[in-house]
Simulated scan of single mutants.
Amino acid sequence: MNKYSHIDLRVNQLESVLPFYEKLLPELGFTRTFHSENWKVFAAEGELPSAAYFAITEDQEHKPNANLIGFWAKDQAEVDHIAKVVKESGGIINGGPRLFPISPTYYAVYFEDPCGNKYEIVHRLN
């Protein structure tokens, strides 16, 4: 069983990063929205609260750090596609997409949102 439930993400300027997430998160399967005044919530298929979701709120004091959120890709083409979406949406590519020496089939892209939160999309066979 996948124990993943949700992410509560802080960003320092919600208005400036929301367009990035509005393009990226649906590509990752978070296709439904449940927004409120203080939270922008993107949910995967399924019934809440058991459906996975990604919630974003503004904290002007937020300082990005070395934490990294990783997502699986079904194949290398999906990794390439997400890298393209990141570039087109104002994100910063930090590495890849390419094979990394973590394993012979570890194909990934590392990137940041416009305020510096770090992510990885990876496909690997072993």
Score class of each variant (00 low, 15 high):
residue 6 H to R: 07
residue 79 V to Q: 02
residue 53 Y to I: 05
residue 39 W to S: 13
residue 103 S to V: 04
residue 53 Y to R: 06
residue 12 N to Y: 05
residue 54 F to M: 09
residue 88 E to K: 15
residue 89 S to G: 06
residue 53 Y to N: 14
residue 64 P to Q: 10
residue 27 E to L: 03
residue 26 P to G: 02
residue 33 T to F: 00
residue 98 R to Q: 11
residue 17 V to T: 13
residue 76 Q to M: 14
residue 6 H to K: 04
residue 34 F to R: 13
residue 60 Q to A: 12
residue 88 E to W: 13
residue 109 V to L: 00
residue 34 F to H: 15
residue 22 E to K: 11
residue 89 S to A: 15
residue 84 K to F: 00
residue 56 I to F: 01
residue 77 A to T: 10
residue 3 K to Q: 12
residue 105 T to E: 06
residue 113 D to E: 06
residue 20 F to H: 11
residue 39 W to T: 15
residue 88 E to N: 15
residue 30 F to E: 02
residue 77 A to P: 03
residue 81 H to D: 04
residue 71 F to S: 07
residue 13 Q to G: 07
residue 42 F to A: 12
residue 32 R to D: 09
residue 10 R to A: 13
residue 75 D to Q: 12
residue 9 L to P: 11
residue 46 G to T: 04
residue 17 V to D: 03
residue 25 L to G: 02
residue 115 C to V: 14
residue 102 I to T: 07
residue 90 G to S: 13
residue 44 A to N: 08
residue 42 F to W: 13
residue 99 L to M: 10
residue 93 I to E: 02
residue 84 K to C: 06
residue 74 K to R: 14
residue 36 S to Q: 13
residue 98 R to P: 01
residue 7 I to A: 02
residue 16 S to Q: 14
residue 76 Q to N: 14
residue 61 E to Q: 14
residue 62 H to A: 15
residue 2 N to K: 11
residue 119 Y to C: 04
residue 41 V to G: 10
residue 96 G to H: 02
residue 3 K to G: 04
residue 27 E to M: 08
residue 3 K to W: 03
residue 74 K to Y: 08
residue 95 G to S: 14
residue 87 K to M: 13
residue 15 E to T: 13
residue 89 S to M: 12
residue 117 N to K: 00
residue 111 F to R: 01
residue 50 S to G: 01
residue 27 E to K: 11
residue 22 E to Q: 15
residue 103 S to R: 07
residue 19 P to C: 09
residue 18 L to K: 02
residue 8 D to T: 00
residue 88 E to H: 11
residue 35 H to P: 09
residue 39 W to C: 10
residue 122 V to D: 03
residue 97 P to T: 10
residue 63 K to M: 11
residue 123 H to R: 13
residue 68 L to G: 05
residue 9 L to Q: 06
residue 112 E to G: 00
residue 60 Q to T: 15
residue 54 F to E: 00
residue 67 N to H: 11
residue 114 P to G: 07
residue 115 C to N: 13
residue 74 K to F: 03
residue 104 P to W: 00
residue 125 L to E: 14
residue 49 P to W: 02
residue 90 G to C: 10
